[in-house]
Design a protein around this nucleic acid. Sequence first.
DNA 1: CTTTTTGCAAACAATTTGCAAAAAA
DNA 2: TTTTTTGCAAATTGTTTGCAAAAAG
Lengths: 146, 146
Amino acid sequence: MKVDNNEIEQRIDHFKAAVKKAGLKLTHQRLEIFREIASSVDHPDAIGVYNLVKGRMPTVSLDTVYRTLWTLNDLGLISALGTSHESVRFDANLKQHHHFVCVKCGMVRDFENEKFNLLEVHKDIEEFGSIVDTHIEVRGICNSCK
Amino acid sequence: MKVDNNEIEQRIDHFKAAVKKAGLKLTHQRLEIFREIASSVDHPDAIGVYNLVKGRMPTVSLDTVYRTLWTLNDLGLISALGTSHESVRFDANLKQHHHFVCVKCGMVRDFENEKFNLLEVHKDIEEFGSIVDTHIEVRGICNSCK
DNA sequence: CTTTTTGCAAACAATTTGCAAAAAA
DNA sequence: TTTTTTGCAAATTGTTTGCAAAAAG
């Protein structure tokens, strides 16, 4: 699925400015990799981006895709989805609850909040599918990291 | 950090009943692995559990920990944190937004909702740290999966 | 006893790294 | 022409699998 063309152009302009401002070089592969993510409403992973970009740049390598993705992430031009790219964690709390996640160290703590268990999001997502549950992730800095 | 002892006992009783009901065998390693997760408020990953359990069961192996963790997850006794144990995905949408995630196929779509950008969670998490942002993940079944 | 589960070792998949050649500024 | 970035290949990390021996019921 595709993002509106105007929005894509805007994102690419912003990207070019940010790369220049950071003193990084504007390479063909950086542009194409960014364009791919900026154009898509599903959020592709590295291999997904690689396969798409390879159509237009057959010599691109997967490790360049990875490096570029993290560079763009560090520049704040894109963001990595999910808590982290680390290992899966497990939780034995079966009551509905939400999570506080420390963006520095990855610490996770549960909290409960009745009001949030029934958040009214139906209208926002009815075009996508039906709801199973709603989970809030509060990102922050934990007490031992600040 | 540790969960209240009463709560731990309850969780273990529930675990034993569920294992029996599923026709699985109640092994020493399953009990110890479950006890470890049920006792902890941080949500350990496989190696974390492995290292803790190894103290009491030096012969346990990491692959048994993995197998057990997924078995317990399938039984609904614990749950895996984060969207999935797959690869990292990237997002070029820089406006504050939330996600709809399909629990079957992993499809992710953005949605915006002004009201949710300022959710009042401060009281719930002030013992943990300071807030950077609040993100809602709506889990559901997407239209092409149902 | 019969069937499931474990531990071991080897296989895999996702991601990262060192280094010389190629491209950007 | 200097410095960054790329592509390749090899290394690493997290996780999974086949199989014979051990444990559960």
